[in-house]
Simulated assay, not measured.
Amino acid sequence: MGGRGRGSRSRTQRKHFRDGRENVWKRSKSDSTSSDPNGNGNSENKTHWKPFSTQNSAFDEYYKEQGIVTAEEWDTFIEVLRTPLPAAFRINPSSQFCEDIKSQLENDFMNSLKAETTDGGEVEAIRPLPWYPDNLAWHSNFSRMQLRKNQTLERFHEFLKLENEIGNITRQEAVSMVPPLFLDVCPDHFVLDMCAAPGSKTFQLLEIIYQSTKPGSLPDGMVMANDLDVQRCNLLIHQTKRMCTANLIVTNNEAQHFPGCRADKNGSKASEMEIEPQISQLLFDRVLCDVPCSGDGTLRKAPDMWRKWNPGMANGLHSLQIQIAMRGTLMKYSN
């Protein structure tokens, strides 16, 4: 009876879900025939796709009041937000092909792509990011859309796709590469990534832990990557499995209620007088909190945010962001 009860409730919930949501993609028969007497929808009144609007008066008003930029810089600021986000990627330093990939970028693609012109008028088509160590991170002046559509860039695009699938590089926004660098992670650190999906920062943290480890051996450190959404956890696993590491644990919890962990971090063995090693609360050496955001900074890669944005999106998330940050402080060593 219990099984039938669960199934009944499940079917009822699915029915309510279907009935309670408007299907904005399904054109009704009356709509399709109103424009064309034959029902073919070929009338001149047929609605065509239009590009996303890159204007939002509420956005302008809100950020002008915040004084994010000066009045003289406002137009330049908005113009940058309206340009597509350039592609960026990072080379995995623990890959045996790391130096070969850098050489191919420096001696092949930098020259072969030099003749390509970009919307921003940049001279260099690709270049290493000057603030990232050892020329391991690269910036392209082509947007992801340009890389997919431009036939001249096809060889470079195929190179990026192949090396990304293998795990030799990771395609990641430049701004996303910054937080792991500030954490100053060492190979023996235990690191908690509280809101980890889709996993580019998690992969970067693993790279840092492995960077000074001898080939064939495992580092003493570990990364624990958490996310609330189980589907995003699957994406996180797909992203990080390219590393082929045993130093990663993926968890599925609410970050603001992340449970306490217990472990024998030092790996000490029980003495002759002890039955088992001393197990204590696990506190992390580093904690990364990339908390849920309102998407203000994603306008260049997600232009539909121009239409959706309103001040309530940020204000509504503020308390959750504080809760996650406070929980993160409790998971870290005090020193």
Results as ranks from 00 to 15, higher is better:
Pro180Tyr: 05
Glu276Arg: 14
Cys293His: 11
Pro277Ala: 10
Glu99Trp: 02
Pro86Gln: 05
Asp119Thr: 08
Thr83Lys: 11
Gly267Thr: 05
Asn111Gln: 15
Ala87Pro: 01
Asn310Trp: 00
Phe59Glu: 02
Asn141Arg: 05
Ala115Pro: 00
Ile237Met: 12
Pro51Val: 11
Val185Thr: 10
Pro215Trp: 13
Ser319Ala: 14
Trp309Asn: 03
His48Pro: 00
Asp220Met: 05
Lys149Phe: 09
Leu288Glu: 09
Leu153Gly: 06
Glu154Gly: 00
Ile322Tyr: 08
Gln55Glu: 13
Glu73Val: 12
Leu282Met: 12
Pro219Thr: 08
Arg242Glu: 09
Lys102Thr: 01
Gln146Ile: 01
Asp220Ile: 00
Asp100Ala: 14
Phe59Arg: 02
Pro51Trp: 09
Pro180Ala: 03
Asp119Met: 05
Lys265Arg: 15
Lys64Cys: 07
Asp36Val: 05
His318Met: 11
Gly316Tyr: 10
Ala71Asp: 14
Asn164Val: 00
Pro187Glu: 07
Met194Ala: 05
Asp285Trp: 05
Trp131Gly: 01
Leu147Ala: 02
Thr33Met: 03
Lys269Phe: 09
Thr117Phe: 01
Gly221Trp: 07
Ser32Met: 14
Glu73Cys: 07
Leu320Val: 04
Ser217Met: 06
Ile208Asp: 02
Asp19Phe: 03
Phe203Thr: 15
Asp285Leu: 05
Ala87Val: 07
Ile275Ser: 11
Ile78Cys: 10
Arg262Asn: 01
Leu113Ser: 08
Lys114Thr: 02
Glu65Ile: 13
Asn266Lys: 11
Tyr333Arg: 12
Gly167Thr: 10
Glu274Leu: 08
Ser43Val: 06
Val287Tyr: 05
Cys289Lys: 11
Met194Gln: 04
Asp108Ala: 04
Leu299Arg: 08
Leu136Trp: 01
Asp184Ala: 14
Ser334Ala: 10
Gln146Ser: 13
Gln13Met: 12
Glu158Val: 08
Arg21Ile: 12
Ser280Cys: 09
Leu317Arg: 08
Asn310Leu: 00
Met110Thr: 13
Glu207Ala: 15
Asn335Lys: 12
Pro215Met: 14
Met313Phe: 12
Arg307Asp: 13
Ser280Glu: 15
Asn45Ala: 08
Trp25Asn: 14
Leu181Thr: 08
Leu183Met: 05
Thr251Lys: 05
Arg82Glu: 14
Leu330Asn: 09
Asn45Pro: 00
Asn111Tyr: 15
Leu105Asn: 02
His139Cys: 06
Glu276Ser: 15
Leu183Gly: 00
Ala270Trp: 02
Asn164Leu: 00
Ile249Asn: 07
Gly316Ile: 11
Ile68Met: 06
Arg262Pro: 00
Asp100Tyr: 07
Val69Asp: 01
Gly167Lys: 08
Gly267Val: 07
Ser10Phe: 12
Glu61Lys: 10
Trp306Thr: 03
Met194Phe: 04
Leu206Asn: 04
Ser95His: 03
Ala125Asn: 06
Val178Pro: 01
Met243Glu: 06
Leu192Asn: 10
Gly39Leu: 01
Phe59Val: 02
Val223Ala: 06
Cys289Tyr: 11
Asp31Asn: 10
Gln231Tyr: 12
Ser43Glu: 09
Ile101Glu: 01
Lys50Tyr: 06
Pro84Val: 09
Glu79Thr: 15
Pro179Leu: 09
His48Ser: 12
Ser57Tyr: 04
Ser176Val: 06
Leu235Arg: 13
